[in-house]
Simulated scan of single mutants.
Amino acid sequence: MLKGVNRVLLGVVGLVLVVLGGSVLAIGLGAPAPSWWPHDGRHDVLLDEAERTRWRDDGWWWPAVIAVLAVLVLLSLWWLLAVLRRRRLTEVLLDTGDDEGASLRGSALEQALAEEVSHLDGVARAHVLLTGRRGTPRTRILLRLRPHIDPGTTLRSLEKGPLTHARDSAGLAALPTEARLHTVKHGPERVT
């Protein structure tokens, strides 16, 4: 969802900036000003003396401007951090026991875990996402269960089988997991 929101916001902001910047550039180069343009022509300033000093005597004006700009800066920083933050773990550090370390690609562990989970009884599909830090990974597992399968039994099988195997094979002390269970929706079937 964040990817879609980013694309829409970037598209809207980009479009507004291109239209305004292109208009300013065109008018600065001598093109006639469009009817919606608030200024007269090429030598007109964006903020004249009256516009700059209109609310100088009002005590609320500058604190309001500074507050709005501060909120915009904070929202921009939050957006930048959300975009730059990696959701996937690229590698897991393994303790080999000989004072040397090794690393395992996160995608390899995800694929191996998803393959083993998908072979559990009652699981139609499985999707695994590795998050957290390199030394303390966490997993998020989305399970699509077949109809009439007991979720408790599937969770116990998940814990005792694939999660234990992944934790032991990677030499991890713990592998916290968030599992989300959904049932596969089947369309109506024709009975003859």
Rank of each mutant, 00 (worst) to 15 (best):
P137S: 12
P137V: 08
A50P: 00
W37Q: 02
D58T: 04
K3T: 10
G152E: 15
H186A: 03
A50M: 03
R146T: 02
V8F: 15
R138V: 00
L93G: 07
L130Y: 07
R134A: 14
D48Q: 02
V18C: 12
V18T: 13
K3E: 14
S103V: 13
M1K: 05
V8P: 00
L47G: 00
L142P: 00
E91I: 00
H39N: 05
T164V: 06
G122I: 02
L74K: 05
K3H: 10
V12C: 09
E189Y: 07
L81E: 07
R180Y: 11
H43F: 09
H119Q: 12
R144K: 01
L93I: 15
E189L: 11
P137E: 14
K3G: 07
W61E: 08
V73F: 15
T153A: 07
G28Y: 02
V83F: 13
H119C: 01
T139A: 11
D150H: 06
G22V: 02
S169V: 06
T164D: 14
G14C: 14
S35Y: 02
A102M: 05
L181D: 04
G59S: 11
H127A: 13
D98G: 09
L80V: 13
L29Q: 14
L46P: 01
R133V: 02
A124V: 04
S76Y: 10
P147F: 07
V18Y: 08
E91H: 09
L25A: 15
T154M: 01
L142T: 05
P63L: 05
R56D: 08
E116A: 11
L163V: 03
S169R: 11
V83T: 13
L113G: 01
S157L: 04
